[in-house]
Design a binder for these strands. Structure first.
Ligand SMILES: [Mn+2]
Ligand SMILES: [Mn+2]
Ligand SMILES: [Zn+2]
Ligand SMILES: [Zn+2]
Lengths: 133, 133
DNA sequence: AACTAAATTGTAATTATTACAAATCTGTTT
DNA sequence: AAACAGATTTGTAATAATTACAATTTAGTT
């Protein structure tokens, strides 16, 4: 599924800027910050505004086409992979690694049937291979 | 275990300010923000500085006597309960609820034996009972 | 009392994010 | 094609949480 299809499927009008951001998210699963996305796209779209990146990611998140990650104290991070997976952040190098093959969390929490769960995020923190030597 | 014992056990010199913050964390398991702690303690300790709250919580976190929660986009939140449990945040009222009786996460992640895990946090997001009616 | 190190305070700096109004773009109607 | 309306983008300013840092105060020791 390419960027254009994905936007249309999520009722997002595909502008040049939105397509560029979506395309970026589908080719960089590094959980980028707003600044990283802006810096990468800015040369090709010289008029691009950082506010547009904020607006766009906010819209994408509302429409469920990207995921907001609160794993980083400093900056918001975003994930173009919206399938269920957890994340690991290295305290030393800051890299964020996907953790797949986890059992899907229940939609209902045992002991709390009254809560409506929209989302579950699991964040691991520690040290990656490269930072352990 | 009271505030004084807890600080001493964690090699933290018990000043008036530190004792007050620790005492607050042991009697308010509401996952408070820096501002909430400051506003609550400020009347009794008129000279108290907000920087001291930041410093103190930072020290407490390093020494493992409180937990930092990244569940709230706007403010850092802290938890005086350092035992293993997850958290639920209501999108409407912002309340953060403890989720206990969860199976302890593994210290080693299946498929990633190379990662050193220091901490695991699970954040649920949705709507609480009061906000569903 | 003098000394030293640690802790606290107050203020200023930093910086991510949001607010907002002006400008631009897109598609439609006359 | 020109006029129009609505959506989108842009640039700048405002907001606000956090951090940096130097001066002051406190606590403990000689
Ligand atoms: Mn991911
Ligand atoms: Mn808790
Ligand atoms: Zn690393
Ligand atoms: Zn609620």
């Amino acid at each position: 599924m390419d960027a254009l299809e994905l936007l249309i499927k999520h009722d997002i009008k595909p502008s040049v800027q939105r397509l560029a951001v979506m395309e970026y998210m589908l080719t960089h699963f590094t959980h980028p910050t707003v600044d990283e996305i802006y810096s990468s796209l800015s040369p090709a779209i010289p008029t691009l505004s950082k506010t547009t990146i904020y607006n766009t990611l906010s819209l994408f998140e509302e429409q469920g086409v990207v995921l907001y990650l609160g794993i980083d104290k400093k900056n918001a991070r975003f994930d173009g992979n919206t399938s269920h997976h957890a994340h690991f952040r290295c305290k030393k190098c800051g890299k964020i690694i996907d953790i797949f093959n986890q059992k899907q969390e229940d939609i209902v929490i045992e002991g709390h049937p009254e809560l409506i769960i929209d989302e579950v995020q699991t964040y691991y923190t520690g040290y990656c291979k490269a930072c352990t030597n």
